[in-house]
Amino acid sequence: MASKPRIKVPKTASAGEVITIKTLISHEMESGQRKDKDGNPIPRQIINKFTCAFEGQTVFECDLDPAISANPYFEFNAKVPASGTFKFTWLDDDGSVYEAEELIEVK
């Protein structure tokens, strides 16, 4: 079952404030180290890259290796200069791209 990513971004912030963002996406993160019942290796399939950008500017990125747990979780910070949109992207080994957006209002 493909679930939508879970993202936690404050709804509002003051200009220049450093906020905390949390993300969690449902994914097996098949490491490539496991074998199936017949002893054949299960091919690796992981999310290999995560990015967070604000209005087109990169805020945080992560290159993931198979040692990241299933359902990858990230907590990081972002400096918010003005109202705008955060864009989150997860890249899957199989070429799939999962995307999500969150708005923030600067008061």
Binding site: Q57, V59, D65, I68, K79
Partner: peptide, 17 residues
């Protein structure tokens, strides 16, 4: 993993599992 930060990160802090 490798974390990449920018000035927009505000702080060099990251948590994962």
């Amino acid at each position: 993993a490798t974390f990449h930060f920018t000035e927009m990160s505000g702080a060099a802090l990251a948590t994962t599992r």
